[in-house]
Amino acid sequence: MNTATLAATLLVGLTRLITGVRAQWIDRTPPVPGIQRVYFANHASHLDTLVIWSSLPPPLRRQTSPVAAMDYWNRPGPRRWLAVSVLHAILIERGTGGARESLRHLIAALDEGRSLILFPEGSRGDGEHIGELRAGLYHIARERPDVELTPVFLENLSRILPKGEYLPVPLIATTRFGRPIRLEPNEERQVFLERARQTLLALGGRA
């Protein structure tokens, strides 16, 4: 076991300890590994990525890379090591400027067989509402239609570590994995993105 694997195991343990995270799969059991997925989730906390990653069963976790913001994670030192070596994250530019380039990175990762964790809202919300989803999810769905788009609703993360706080309160988080959605033939971008957003809301019982 090398340092990165050890760090990953510790990180999963620590995340479970702080958030007591419980994973709920809509069909009760986690799906089989092997199928490529993009897990897309609501975003309210810095812990979101770790919580989804930790609640995946190990075989699924090993094939999954979180998508993270370059400006925050690509700093020399432990941060980049954590993102790249431990979590196998894919770092992308935020904002519309590098959108095409970012998409290319994500497609390349999918073509290498990775699954992705994506927060299509782009930035963290207040935990109550889900903002409009960015176009990346639509482009992935169009470019790689065989990839399963699995909605994940994160519950309580905005209470555990809300935006603007740096100390967590150890409440119990829940990750609820829903049934995958796919892009319908001829479905408009806005229609698809709104449908994806509604899926998340319904999963959280907020629709």
């Binding site: 809300p162 706080e165 100390l167 309160v169």
Partner: peptide, 10 residues
């Protein structure tokens, strides 16, 4: 609880 209770809970 409210957002304002965060640090109290800590």
């Amino acid at each position: 609880t409210h957002r304002a209770d965060h640090r109290t809970l800590f």
